[in-house]
């Protein structure tokens, strides 16, 4: 069988290239170790490019156009912890292989894979979708005074903070022809069901009606000047915003602002790395010829593979260690 495979798919043949398993004496490294570190160096530059874009755009953002406190901090903290735990289990898996304990290796690797899977699931089925149903409207500066009750710019000016131009919350009614009409309708039904109020939908055809977030409900409250750990309930206050006063309106999708654009791009790319790591770990965990199957013939080779896959995984963890504070906290 393996002959057949190697005949038609030379991709799977093994060559006699030295130092695939044994270290070269003068460098003390086997080739894959060097290779993965070079790859990680390029990854540093890839994420470096993205982070420098983040810095560039954040510094360049006009006051009030770089939002904060819009992400779910407890969930982010949990995901950070999950990645850290998986980093511990993956070194344990490698150490187990080094000590030739296959059973332990399988267990630790399974935990690592599960941690990765949980991380991605939380991201894709909870965090991102929650953002896609959250709405923000940037008010034109010349119209901002009309919406002072939601923006609280006088209070912010007095206390020396950046102005606020955005009203966020759940969209209950959108101007005619808006692509968010369907979402608004759905939210309005939910709102009516929860509160028993049916005043969310206005007859006017060019109004946004937003069930505003706690910040916009009491913008001059000092309690809102600092971010909060636990996400607060959306208030039942409704803001009615005329489309003429709107600079831009969007759900919390990449197009919402440069903040969400960088957030989705960096976490998306990071998520792809997590996915890639999971797939590699699955390959090494299952009895493929290059996976656990390798244990029988050359356990040291398998340990090397786990080590370099682990290095990649730690790097993915390391990137997240920076992603978490810059998007969730600061």
């Amino acid at each position: 069988m393996s002959n057949l495979i190697s005949k038609y798919f030379p991709l799977f043949t093994d060559k006699e290239v030295p130092h695939t398993v044994q270290a070269r004496p003068d460098t003390g490294l086997y080739s894959a170790k060097l290779g993965i570190w070079l790859f990680l160096a390029s990854e540093v530059m890839l994420f470096g490019g993205l982070f420098s874009a983040y810095i560039f755009l954040r510094i360049g953002a006009e006051p009030g156009y770089w939002p904060s406190g819009l992400l779910n901090v407890p969930v982010g903290t949990m995901n950070t912890a999950i990645l850290i735990i998986s980093s511990v289990t993956v070194v344990f898996a490698w150490a187990a292989l080094k000590m030739r304990q296959l059973g332990k290796y399988r267990l630790y690797m399974l935990i690592t894979i599960l941690c990765g899977a949980i991380f991605l699931t939380v991201k894709l089925s909870y965090e991102w979708p929650a953002k896609f149903n959250h709405f923000g409207v940037f008010i034109k500066k010349e119209s901002a005074s009309k919406y002072e009750a939601f923006l609280g710019n006088k209070h912010l000016e007095v206390t020396g903070q950046n102005p606020r131009w955005e009203i966020t919350g759940h969209l209950l009614d959108a101007p005619k022809g808006s692509s968010y009409a369907h979402q608004a309708e759905h939210n309005a039904e939910h709102f009516a069901h929860e509160t028993g109020r049916h005043d969310a939908v206005t007859p006017a055809e060019d109004d946004y009606v937003i069930q505003v977030d706690a910040v916009n409900a009491n913008p001059s409250d000092k309690d809102n000047d600092r971010p909060h750990f636990w996400p607060r309930e959306t208030s039942t206050t409704l803001a009615v915003i005329n489309a003429k006063d709107v600079e831009s309106a969007s759900v919390f999708a990449p197009r919402h602002s440069t903040y969400f654009a960088t957030y989705f791009l960096i976490t998306g790319l990071h998520g792809l790395h997590v996915l890639g790591g999971i797939l590699v770990f699955l390959y090494l965990w299952l009895p493929f010829p290059g996976g656990t199957g390798l244990y029988k013939t050359n356990p040291e080779h398998l340990a090397n593979r786990v080590e370099i896959a682990g290095l990649f995984w730690h790097f993915v963890d390391l990137v997240w260690i920076f992603v978490f504070p810059i998007f969730y906290l600061l």
Partner: peptide, 29 residues
């Protein structure tokens, strides 16, 4: 190549999302 190409790859992703997702990494107000 290893160290200089990745920032362009990052920039390529950004321009791609500018074009298909309506972000504005490179598009001024």
């Amino acid at each position: 190549l290893v160290l200089a190409f990745p920032p362009l790859e990052a920039a390529g992703f950004m321009q791609l999302t500018d074009r298909v997702l309506g972000t504005s990494f490179f598009m001024p107000t």
